[in-house]
Design a protein around this nucleic acid. Structure first.
Lengths: 362, 362
DNA sequence: AGGTAGCGTGGGAGCGCTCCCACTGCGATG
DNA sequence: CATCGCAGTGGGAGCGCTCCCACGCTACCT
C-alpha cells in the first residue's frame, strides 16, 4: 500500500528508533509525534512524519501496551447459548453499529464467547488480566455474575438491555415501554378493544417494560381488562400462549406479541382456529425482523434502532473509560432522539426511541 | 474467582518473577511451566503450578507478544457493506462455529470491519504490522485486493466462499453444486419437468456452482431445456427474474431460487399471477433461513452447515499457521462428511455437505 | 578412573515502546 | 546583566516476558 522506502538493515519492520534515526531526532520526539503530543515544533513534526511515511512505520502494539500498560482493546462478550439475542438480526446489526463507531478510534474489538463454563473461566482470566479497557455486554440474565465481577475488578462496562430499573452498569436500551405503548395505541386507533399481550420471559426487564407499556396504553384508553399470557420469546411459546388466550377469551380482536417469533407462533394458532388476520384478529409483533417482513400477511412490528444501540454502547463505554480514545473528539453526544439519564454510581443510561412499522397484519 | 493469596508488594498483578520467587525457582523455569515445555521435573512443575494458583498469576499478553514476536490473535474480517453474507443467519452461525472451535485455543478473535476505505486502510496497516497470526475472510468479491495483499505479506488466511475453482487461498465452502443438484433432483422426483432457476450474482463462484448443479441434474434426467434467469440475491431481483421467467415460460412448473430471499420475491410474483404453490408451481430456495421457515407455505430450502463451516475455517487456519495453537491437539481432522482437496500452493480446500430441507412449497 | 552426554535449571539480554527527568536555548523578568 | 521560566528535545530506565547460553549434576560410557 505505502512505499517501503529504504529499510537499512534489520529485516523486520521499522522501529521507533529507526524512524528517529532517519528523522534525525530522538526516540522521545518520535513518540510524541506518533501520539499527537502538542509539545513538538512544526518543523520537527513534519520531519518525523516524513520519516514515518518513508519507512512505512507502524507502531508495535504489543510494545506500546507493555510500556504504557494499556491495551487499546475492548471486548464484546457474547453469551453464546443464549439464542434470543444472538439471533438475527439483532447481533449483526448491533455489530454494525459498534463497528462504525469504532472506526474513529484506535480501539480494537475483541469477540469473547461466554457460553460454556470453560469459556466463562477464560473470560474471567481475561478480565483479571486486564487485557481489555472495557467490556460490552449483550443480553445478560438477571442472575449472571459477570456484571458483579466487572464491578469488582473495576472494569468499565456497558450493558445492552439493562437487567432492571436499578441497573448498576451503564446501559443502552431501546424504549420498550414506549414501543409497546405505541403498538397498543395503534391497535386502539384501529378500533380494537379486546387486545391481548403475549409477553416475553418476565425475568427479562425489557419484557416487563413492554407489559407496562401495554397496560398503560389500555388504561389511558379506559380499557379495563388486561388479557395477558406469558410466553418465552420462542415460537412454541407463542403458540401455547395464543391457544390459552383463545380459550379464555374467544372474543379477543387483537394480539400484541412481545416478539416477532412469538407472533409467528400466535399466527399459526389463529389460522388453525379459522381466524383471519387482520379481519378477525389484528396482530402486532416486536423486533421488526425478517420474519415480520415475510410473514403472511406482513406483520406490523416495533422496530428497535439496533445499529444505533451499538453505536450508543461505544459512546457510553468511551465515557466510562474516559481518556483520549485515539483520534475521535469528545466522543459525540447521545444519539439523536434518545434519552440519557444518570443513575447510581454516575453511570449513564441511554434509551433509544423505537418505531412502529405498520404492515397488513393490523 | 481464584483466591488472591498474599501479594507481597507491587500493588499490580503478579508477574512471572514473583511467581518464580514464590516457587523458589528461576524465571526461565516458570516460563517453561507456563508454556508446557516437557523439560521440567514433575516436582518443580508442581511447585510452580502451586505458586501460580496461589498468586492468581495470569501471563501478560503484551509482554509475551513483544518478547516472542507473536500475537496469539487471529482476525475475522467483516466486509461490512456487503449485505448478503453479513446477513442472516449466516454471520452469527459462522461466528458460533468459529467461537466453539476457538475455545480450545489460546487464540483471541479480533473483529475487523473492512467496509469503508478508511477501515480498509486501517486493515492494511494491521496486516502490515503483523498484528494477527492469521485471517479469516468471509465472502470476498472476485476483484477484492485483500487476498493478494495477504499473500504478499505472507499472512495465513482462510476464505469462506472461494472466489473461483482456482482459489489461491485455503478455503471452506459448502457444496453448492451438490446442494443445487439435490434441490433439482427433488423437484424432478416430484414429477416436475419445466424447472426454472433464478441464479445469484454470477460473479459469485457459489452462484455459478449452483447453476452447474442445476444444469447437470436436468441433463442427467434427460431434460433439455434450461430455464435460467439471473437474479442478484435480493428480493427485488427475485421478483424481476420471476416476472421475466413467467412471461417467457408461462408453463413452468417449478422454480429453484438461488437464495431464500429471492424465493420470497419469486413467491410474490407467482401469487400475483394467480399461481398456487406448490400445486401449480413448486418453489425451492437456498440457505434455509428464517424466511424459509416462516414463509407461506413454508419453503423447501437447501441448508448449508454454516456453523460447521466456521469450525472448518479455524481448522484450516490452524493448519496454515502451523505451530502449536495452545492446548488443542493436532487440530482435529476435517469435518465429518466434508471433502478436502489440496490445491495450488499446498493450501487445503474443504467442501461441506449441504442438506435439503423439504417443506410444503414443493 | 576420567570423560561425556544429556537433563533440569538460572539468569542475562533484549523485544519496541512510554514515561519522565535532565538538558539546552531563548525571551521575559528583576 | 544575571536570573528565571518554559518550550522543545534527547535518552535512560523499565514494562513482563521469551530466548538462549551456561552451569551443575547424575548416569553411563570407555
Amino acid at each position: 500500500m505505502t512505499g517501503q522506502g529504504a529499510r537499512s538493515r534489520s529485516a523486520g519492520r521499522p522501529t521507533l528508533e529507526e524512524v528517529a534515526a532517519r528523522a534525525g531526532v530522538g526516540r522521545g520526539t518520535v513518540s510524541r509525534v506518533i501520539n499527537g503530543s502538542p509539545r513538538v515544533s512544526d518543523s520537527t513534526r513534519a520531519a518525523v512524519e516524513a520519516a514515518v511515511a518513508e519507512l512505512g512505520y507502524v507502531p508495535n502494539t504489543a510494545a506500546r501496551a507493555l510500556a504504557a500498560n494499556r491495551t487499546d482493546a475492548i471486548a464484546l462478550v457474547v453469551p453464546e447459548p443464549e439464542t434470543r439475542f444472538f439471533a438475527e438480526p439483532y447481533f449483526s446489526d448491533m455489530l454494525r453499529g459498534v463497528g462504525s463507531e469504532l472506526a474513529d478510534t484506535e480501539m480494537q474489538l475483541l469477540l469473547i464467547f461466554a457460553g460454556s463454563d470453560r469459556e466463562r473461566q477464560r473470560l474471567a482470566q481475561y478480565l483479571a488480566a486486564h487485557r481489555v479497557e472495557g467490556v460490552l455486554l449483550v443480553s445478560v440474565h438477571a442472575d449472571d455474575p459477570l456484571p458483579d465481577l466487572l464491578a469488582a475488578l473495576d472494569i468499565p462496562a456497558v450493558i445492552s438491555g439493562p437487567r432492571s430499573a436499578e441497573e448498576t452498569l451503564a446501559s443502552v436500551d431501546s424504549d420498550n415501554y414506549g414501543g409497546a405503548r405505541s403498538a397498543v395505541e395503534h391497535l386502539l386507533s384501529r378500533g380494537r378493544r379486546r387486545i391481548a399481550h403475549i409477553t416475553g420471559r418476565l425475568d427479562v426487564y425489557g419484557a416487563q417494560r413492554r407489559v407496562d407499556g401495554y397496560r398503560d396504553a389500555l388504561e389511558a384508553a379506559g380499557v379495563r381488562e388486561l388479557l395477558l399470557e406469558q410466553g418465552d420469546f420462542t415460537e412454541e411459546g407463542g403458540r401455547r400462549a395464543m391457544s390459552a388466550l383463545l380459550s379464555r377469551h374467544p372474543d379477543l380482536d387483537a394480539v400484541f406479541a412481545g416478539s416477532d417469533v412469538m407472533a409467528a407462533g400466535a399466527r399459526q394458532v389463529l389460522r388453525e382456529a379459522g381466524l383471519r388476520i387482520p379481519a378477525d384478529v389484528a396482530l402486532v409483533g416486536y423486533d421488526d425482523s425478517a420474519i415480520a417482513r415475510h410473514m403472511e400477511p406482513p406483520l406490523t412490528s416495533v422496530r428497535q434502532p439496533i445499529e444505533s444501540m451499538g453505536r450508543a454502547m461505544i459512546g457510553l463505554l468511551q465515557a466510562e473509560i474516559g481518556g483520549e480514545w485515539g483520534a475521535g473528539g469528545p466522543g459525540g453526544g447521545p444519539t439523536s432522539g434518545s434519552v440519557v439519564a444518570v443513575g447510581a454510581g454516575g453511570h449513564r443510561h441511554e434509551v433509544l426511541r423505537t418505531e412502529l412499522v405498520v404492515r397488513e397484519s393490523s
